[in-house]
Design a protein around this nucleic acid. Structure first.
Length: 568
RNA sequence: UGGGGCGUCGCCAAGCGGCAAGGCAACGGGUUUUGAUCCCGUCAUUCGGAGGUUCGAAUCCUCCCGCCCCAGCCA
């Protein structure tokens, strides 16, 4: 994997966790190389942009201190988890450019240890098997403002508890019939401490352990211990787990764990116009509102990849965001800015005509093909590509108008009787236009000005502007998928009404009669280009091939013109 | 009306008692064979509110207001 470029941030984003680790190192609590973090996804869906931030924080911190970061699947709930997600998540982390320490870990690899620790708690009088139903337990738990009351099973003997737990493990009881709970404090103002559940019965096959278990540990009874087993020093999670920290610490204090990790919470990343909830994303997929988890409109890492958002752009974006304790909503414009910034520098240029209008250059002979050469990038040294120029060309319909009243400043494109430069080629003049049955321009007849390739036109000829073009005979027809934001509302999650009410009905448009210059057809799948004057596009990683080119629009060029009054 | 977290420019945010960084967006202007990029400039007399301490407060104290999270045998 190539080394990530240095972030573009001028000042390093603040990160209070980094400061804490640095202080720990300086205080001699641990060596910098001993810093261990982990990224602990539950394999119950595909990773999204919010996870990307967490990945960058965890792997980034480990990198900065020369420590290590583990990838660990928090697979404690077989009813929601699948191997498909495990595979996709590993793929995503690798694609983002990170390498986890050693083998992939699974919480389920530690199930034997967790079971032994549960027995330990029972022996210490710190846990008991409870027969209350879920509804009853909820009642007993009390309300936020009123204390709960003890379960009638709270004082069972250690022997009985041990026996019951063993029988739960052997599948003697139905799902929901019994749970193992910690004996903490039913009056705690922190609901998480009102005798939380340690084990519940789930007679389901697990993607990693098969049918070995029919009881599964809860998140709370697993997470801190997983960290301790792996020697994680700084366990970083999102804000909603702050209330769980006392419980996290409680288990680590009660159990003979091999190390003492500390939990720190930061605000998760939210983007406007974007939904980041596995449940909602899954719904979009399951109900067919998008074409799968890797639909380019999805904020999943798989989707962003297919869209052409580069791993480097995603990393730069995440690294530029502060790690703080507030959870705000970042504007997608900021993300898009990071994408354009990266693609502008790294994407070779090419020309593609999305809405073709035929142009016949009357003073260029029919059978002639002039091989022009054009730089692949205006600033970076990426070499040149061959650009064939012929008598018949395509330009974009938007680059020609029959309205002759527009000033040169307002319309820097082609107008009858005036000149325009064809990018990387000649200056041409439009002479006349033929219309189709609807009265729309069908064919434009033009003439080129000799000796204007790489040269200024003679005195007196002032092109209105520069437009892009493709040879009609040497160019290739291509399919281009144009995407816009999936949601029209800034906060589609929020407020009343259904998520679907906020879907943009025009978020996907497929253009099948686009024309691209020949060099673009040869693009490798998943390579990005700037189609000049249009935007950034990526050759689809699955559907593109030289014989049948398919590009996905990543994002348009920044446009400071068309939105303005008087613009078009 | 319990507990936890947070409130500084439209958005994300620095700041930790000495007189409001930066990024995104926006708006002017310059360069340009991409109306892109790049470059230059403008953009909070004010820090949720009200009191108080101090020569001096966004930073300390008090009270108030607002937003988010917690009552899954989800993570």
């Amino acid at each position: 994997m190539s080394k990530p470029d240095t972030p573009v941030t001028k000042t390093q984003a603040t990160n209070f966790i980094r400061d804490i680790i640095r202080a720990d190192v300086e205080a001699g609590k641990l060596a910098a190389e001993a810093v261990v973090t982990r990224f602990p996804p539950e394999p119950n869906g595909y990773l999204h942009i919010g996870h990307a931030k967490s990945i960058c924080v965890n792997f980034g911190l480990a990198q900065q201190f020369g420590g290590q970061c583990n990838l660990r699947f928090d697979d404690t709930n077989p009813s929601k988890e699948e191997q498909e997600y495990v595979d996709a998540i590993m793929d995503d982390v690798r694609w983002l450019g990170f390498t986890w320490a050693g083998e992939v870990r699974y919480a389920s690899d530690y199930f034997d240890q967790f079971y032994a620790w549960a027995q330990h708690l029972i022996r210490e009088g710190r846990a008991y098997v409870c027969d209350l139903s879920a509804e009853q337990a909820s009642e007993y738990r009390g309300w936020a403002t009123s204390p709960g009351k003890p379960s009638p099973y709270r004082e069972r003997s250690a022997e009985e508890n041990l026996d019951l737990l063993e029988r739960m493990k052997h599948g003697e009881f139905d799902e929901g019939a019994k749970v193992l709970r910690a004996k903490i404090d039913m009056a705690s103002p922190n609901m998480n401490l009102r005798d939380p559940i340690l084990y519940r019965i789930r007679k389901q096959s697990h993607h990693h352990t098969g049918d070995t278990w029919c009881i599964y540990p809860s998140y709370d009874f697993a997470h801190g211990q997983e960290d301790a087993i792996e020697g994680v020093t700084h366990s970083i999670c999102t804000l909603e787990f702050a209330d769980h920290r006392p419980l996290y610490d409680w288990f680590l204090e009660q159990l003979p764990v091999p190390s003492r990790p500390r939990q720190y919470e930061f605000g998760r990343l939210n983007l406007d116009y974007t939904v980041t909830s596995k449940r909602k994303l899954k719904r979009l997929v399951d109900e067919g509102h998008v074409d799968g988890w890797d639909d380019p409109r999805m904020p999943t890492i798989h989707g962003m990849r297919r869209r052409g958002f580069t791993a480097r752009a995603i990393r730069n974006f995440c690294d530029a965001l502060p790690v703080a304790k507030s959870d705000g909503v970042v504007s997608v414009a900021q993300f898009e800015s990071a994408v354009r910034d990266d693609l502008d520098r790294h994407a070779p240029r090419g020309m593609a005509v999305l809405n073709p209008l035929k142009v016949i250059v009357e003073n260029f002979s029919e059978d002639r093909v002039e091989s022009l050469s054009a730089a692949r990038h205006p600033k970076e040294d990426m070499g040149e590509r061959i650009l064939p120029f012929t008598r018949e060309l395509y330009i974009d319909t938007a680059d020609f108008t029959e309205d002759t009243t527009l000033s040169r400043k307002k319309f820097k494109r082609l107008v009858l009787g005036d000149y325009v430069r064809l990018r990387g080629a000649y200056v041409i003049k439009a002479n006349r236009v033929e219309h189709d049955v609807n009265g729309s321009p069908a064919v434009l007849y033009a003439e080129l000005v000799e000796n204007t390739v790489g040269e200024d036109p003679p005195e007196g000829i002032k092109p209105r502007g520069v437009i892009h073009w493709v040879s009609a005979t040497e160019g290739r027809q291509a399919t281009i998928r144009v995407y816009e934001r999936l949601f029209i509302t800034a906060s589609p999650d929020k407020g009343e009404g259904d998520l679907l009410d906020h879907i943009n009905p025009e978020s996907k448009r497929i253009i099948t009669n686009a024309w691209i210059e020949p060099a673009l057809a040869e693009a490798n799948p998943e390579s990005s280009f700037q189609f000049e004057r249009e935007g950034y596009f990526v050759a689809d990683r699955f559907d593109h091939c030289a014989e049948s080119p398919v590009f996905n629009m990543t994002i348009g060029l920044r446009d400071t013109f068309s939105e303005k009054p008087g613009g078009q």
